[in-house]
Design a protein around this nucleic acid. Sequence first.
DNA 1: GTCTATACGAAGATAGAC
DNA 2: GTCTATCTTCGTATAGAC
Lengths: 187, 187
Amino acid sequence: MSTPERLIESTRELLWERGYVGTSPKAVLERAGAGQGSMYHHFKGKPDLALAAIRRTAEEMRTTAEGVLGGPGTPYERIEAYLLRERDVLRGCPVGRLTMDPEVVADDALRAPVDETLGWLRARLAGIVEEGKERGEFAPSVNGEEIAAAVVATVQGGYVLARASGSPAAFDAGVRGLLALLAPRDR
Amino acid sequence: MSTPERLIESTRELLWERGYVGTSPKAVLERAGAGQGSMYHHFKGKPDLALAAIRRTAEEMRTTAEGVLGGPGTPYERIEAYLLRERDVLRGCPVGRLTMDPEVVADDALRAPVDETLGWLRARLAGIVEEGKERGEFAPSVNGEEIAAAVVATVQGGYVLARASGSPAAFDAGVRGLLALLAPRDR
DNA sequence: GTCTATACGAAGATAGAC
DNA sequence: GTCTATCTTCGTATAGAC
């Protein structure tokens, strides 16, 4: 792997583990096995490197989600598959995590990929819910965008509960609760 | 306000804004208008001061939540009141936020108040859901603990969505979606 | 109790040699 | 492209004067 690649990958790992504020160039360099000069040759500085890392992580998250949401099954089944998909729960979401970083939220360039990814996910889920309404799987009274927001929020908040308790159980409980409420009745 | 009080309050603000990793003793001292010596006289160091701040924030959160959850109304109405209560959405949750801090999660003493508070909230909500089942407001098939986890997760995740988009709208959407799913039918 | 002085490594970046 | 200085400020803490 090339040096810029290693720098980006190391940054992605550290951003996930420690966030933007908690990630120092020094730590990135050590993990990547590179020297100071390399980093400042390929990137303008910490924000520039972080931006490259965040963009890649955001794209990866979209790809993973689409793999499940675009799969087979009824709308409910695809949402269920998304919620039940295997996750490293205690590590949390590498994208959502960044919203707790004041320097990411304050910087439009850094926040943009985060916003776009979660926005895309919400819109994608909203469309699936609307599809489910047309098929009679969901009640006509439900609002696709609201359900989509609740689904994404349950996942993001599930990570919070899991990390607080040190166990994935709370994440699973929240997902099961939401799925129970969402399940098509009378079948 | 006494010096230790000012130190704790300043720390609470900074932990909320910037998290544990992003909060330096120096910043706390400036905000509190105190000198280095004062802080190390009253507290053993940064973790000790942070613990005092986190404990107070956790207690405050429990008090606020109990004010709504212990209020009047049917179980559904009390859960609704909790979800719709006024919040400074873009600031996020001062307790839940700490779960994204690796140094908090890694330190049992710092994590304990976070875990206890969210655990208490889940149990409190679970009891209310069970009460609603007894009254026939919720279906007997729903699981109180699961619904409670979904409710808390929706709130915690709602903050993530709001901060990502820079607007409270996503938080509100998620809450409305969950309430629509939770609403008693046929009445 | 509070202050200043001092310490030492880390954060973030630049300069210039190779 | 990569490396090793070098720089300045910050982070965290101790020592000791007042």
